[in-house]
Amino acid sequence: MTFDWKWDFVWEIAPRLAAATLNTLLAAGSGYAIALLLGLALALGQRTRWPALTFVLRETLEFVRSTPLVLQIFFIFYVGPQVGITLSPWVAGMMAIGLHYSAYLSEVYRAGIESVPKGQWEACRALNMTTRDTYARIVLPQAVPQAIPGMGNYLVGIFKDTPMLSVIGVTELMQTANAIGSETYRFLEPYTLVGVIFLALSLPTAGLVRLLERVLRRKLGM
């Protein structure tokens, strides 16, 4: 058995893994920001007066949700240059993650918006509010707390999917662990540490999301 855990080696690679952790968090954060905004736009886009737009968006999002993220990452990274847009691994990766998760988040928003009672819309109409104000001031403030659990789950989901960015060379945790492994021929420590880091970050995040949900609900008086 060649199992021998070396603590000196752990300390040696710790700084690199720490830096990579920051990159992972950055990737997850920016991917999430894109997904949150794009997801909202896609959810609202399905509620316009044009049924054709709704149909196209729904089917496209269904497609995005049904196909592997890793393949979408490759697709965007390699097909971009073919149509004249050369994307850095970071940009391509963020676009892929943002798009993939916006498809999920649009569903979360949609469910949140649909959970707002019809009477709220009618009250806005009776007060002669614009559609924009109705969404911005009445519907979304009620829909978002409903959506928080789902939004939180997908934050954790994005975080756990960032290792896929290693396939196009984004230097997040997985890529760094791979690099360390191929330089030193030691896989035990880097891969295990990556697992531990993920565990240590995603478990508390899940707890935090639950807490945030409670606080928000209370603050909005619901």
Partner: peptide, 19 residues
């Protein structure tokens, strides 16, 4: 709590170290 890719690499590259 961890990623599928991490699990995959761990099972493929690290488990052999445990025989």
């Amino acid at each position: 709590g961890t990623s599928l890719l991490v699990q995959l690499y761990w099972i493929f590259y690290v488990l052999p170290l445990f025989g």
